[in-house]
């Protein structure tokens, strides 16, 4: 059974259809990259999986259980699925450490003292050991984004979603964030990532999906999708993206 399964997911904003019947399967420990032009629906797919957007039709299965049932309590699902945003969205009034501790304390009822060793270890692993007590505006973009990843990981999620997490970063900071993802992949984390980093997708993804107008036009292993795309639309997009 696959970890995450989207079946015919439809999402509309007013009369604009953003997801027009998305089918997607993600296996345990897989990294799936969603590529496509801005507005193709990549981010919306991720926000729907995290239940930040209710879907109009279709179903989203986590471990075979439908989490998109209307009226379902979203908190318990969100605690199992972490998401990292393009614009970091750290809480500006809290230190990096408090940003990370907030959810485990409130949602899981853990205490600071009890959390500290484990979180210190995470900061260290992500090269942030000396940044724990800084506020977000004292950190570089790359550091902020790594704190945001630590914040999501501190809830020990089963699936991680990444929404164009390097798009707001200076080019020289992109590498340090992508390295973190490779580390997570080695640890067997299940990940879905919307990205414009074609090089990274080719190198790290188990599966790449090309989206256009709210649909997955083509999907496959990166070698196949990048080197022998079957669809004209994919070819045109890649020709422009890889130029």
């Amino acid at each position: 059974m696959s970890k995450l399964n989207l079946r015919n997911v439809v999402k509309r904003f007013g009369d604009r259809t953003v997801c027009d019947g998305i089918d997607l399967t993600v296996d345990e420990g897989q990294m799936v990259c969603l590529i496509g032009a801005s507005g193709a629906g990549k981010s919306t797919v991720l926000r729907c999986i995290n239940l930040l957007e209710p879907i109009e039709d279709g179903e989203i299965l986590l471990d075979g259980i439908d989490i998109s049932v209307p009226g379902l309590d979203p908190q318990s699902v969100r605690a199992r699925i972490g998401i990292v945003f393009q614009s970091f969205n750290l809480f500006p009034h809290m230190t990096a450490l408090d940003n990370v501790m907030l959810a485990p304390r409130r949602v899981r009822g853990r205490t600071r003292a009890d959390l500290l060793p484990q979180i210190e270890e995470m900061f260290e692993r992500f090269g942030l050991a000396d940044r724990m007590h800084n506020y977000p505006d004292q950190l570089s973009g790359g550091q902020q984004q790594r704190v945001a990843i630590v914040r999501a990981l501190a809830m020990q999620p089963e699936v991680m979603l990444f929404d164009e997490i390097t798009s707001a970063l200076d080019p020289q900071l992109v590498g340090e964030v992508l390295d973190v993802l490779l580390m997570l992949k080695q640890q067997g984390m299940t990940m879905v990532m919307a990205t414009h980093e074609m090089g990274f997708a080719r190198q790290a993804a188990d599966k790449v999906c090309f989206l256009q107008n709210g649909r997955i036009v083509e999907e496959g292993p990166p070698e196949q999708l990048f080197d022998q795309p079957q669809q004209d639309a994919t070819r045109q997009f890649l020709a422009r993206a890889l130029k």
Partner: peptide, 28 residues
């Protein structure tokens, strides 16, 4: 609203989001 989305995505309830994330910033 992205602050709310970030807090909700971590599994916080609406009440917790208001108390821990939105209100401290709003008051400031």
């Amino acid at each position: 609203h992205s602050q709310r989305a970030a807090a909700l995505s971590l599994g916080l309830t609406e009440g917790q989001v208001m108390r821990d994330v939105v209100l401290p910033q709003a008051v400031r």
